[in-house]
Amino acid sequence: MAAPPDAESLESRINRATNPLNRDTDWSSIHAFCDQLNNDLEGPQLATRLLAHKIQSPQEWEAMQALLVLETCMKNCGKRFHSEVGKFRFLNELIKVVSPKYLGSRSPEPVKKKVLELIYSWTLGLPEEAKISDAYQMLKKQGIIKQ
């Protein structure tokens, strides 16, 4: 029995939301992705893996759209997603984007700027996610985040 038509996979939704061919932001796909990850049992884990991959894309537009999905889902989703994003397993993928020791030298500047803005905003919005603050302090110590 084929899955009901609206049970599109998280992967196809994120692909649609970050499709480089999109002329402008596809908000309906973004919100559909957030809603779906909230409902699926393993949604948060799969969503963070998919987002990490897209955010590390060398294509600026694709990475920026993935960051917009991440930002939107952090605002709209609940604790399960927050705690998945607040794990080093995911935070490390963001660190790779901004750290010159990893992908930092080839990441587009706007992408690096957006990653740092998001991490900073989460230290204010989600103080209970201690690992996010740890990551932020480490980036400051390494001079990747300017004072």
């Binding site: 080093f88 660190i95 480490m138």
Partner: peptide, 17 residues
């Protein structure tokens, strides 16, 4: 068995340095 209740947070990696 040291009798101490260990709180096992679900698995995670270490912070990249």
């Amino acid at each position: 068995h040291n009798g101490k209740i260990e709180f096992h947070d679900d698995s995670d990696e270490d912070l990249l340095e």
